[in-house]
C-alpha cells in the first residue's frame, strides 16, 4: 500500500524525488560487495604478477570472469548511487546539478559496458 499521496505522485515524490529504491540499491549492492570486493582483493594477491600472461590466464577461468563481471557491475552500480548522493549534497545550482548527474550516469554506464566487454573478450579467448 503506497503512502504517497496523489499530489505527491504528481509533484515527483517529495524533495528527493524518489529515495527508497536508492536506499535499498545502495544497501544490497553494499552487502554483495563485501563478498565480491574481498574476492577481488584476494584474487589480486594470489596473482603471481601483473603480467599480461598471468592476468589473462586468471580471467580465462569461467568462475573468475563471472565473479569479475559481477564485482564490476555491482561496484559501478554502488558507485553511481554514491556519486549521485554526493552531487545532490554539494551541487545546488539546478543546471549544474542536473548536468553533473547526467554526466555521472553516462560515465558509469560507459564503464560498465567497457568493463564487461573487456572481461568477456578475455574470457572467451578472443585476445592476442
Amino acid at each position: 500500500m503506497s503512502l504517497v499521496t496523489p499530489l505527491n505522485r504528481v509533484l515527483g515524490l517529495g524533495s528527493a524525488k524518489e529515495g527508497v529504491e536508492h536506499w535499498w540499491g545502495q544497501r544490497l549492492s553494499a552487502v554483495a560487495l563485501v563478498v565480491l570486493g574481498l574476492w577481488f582483493v584476494l584474487a589480486l594477491i594470489r596473482l603471481e604478477d601483473m603480467s599480461y600472461a598471468s592476468v589473462v590466464d586468471w580471467l580465462q577461468a569461467p568462475v573468475a570472469s563471472i565473479l569479475m563481471i559481477l564485482s564490476l557491475l555491482t561496484a559501478i552500480y554502488h558507485s553511481k548511487l554514491g556519486v549521485q548522493m554526493v552531487v545532490e549534497d554539494y551541487v545546488h545550482q539546478p543546471a549544474l546539478k542536473v548536468s553533473t548527474l547526467v554526466l555521472s550516469v553516462f560515465i558509469h554506464i560507459a564503464a560498465a559496458v567497457a568493463g564487461v566487454f573487456a572481461v568477456l573478450k578475455i574470457a572467451l579467448g578472443a585476445v592476442g
Partner: peptide, 11 residues
C-alpha cells in the same frame, strides 16, 4: 576499467 580494456586489447 582502463586496465581491463588494455588487457582485452592484446599483449
Amino acid at each position: 576499467v582502463y586496465w581491463l580494456v588494455a588487457l582485452a586489447s592484446g599483449s
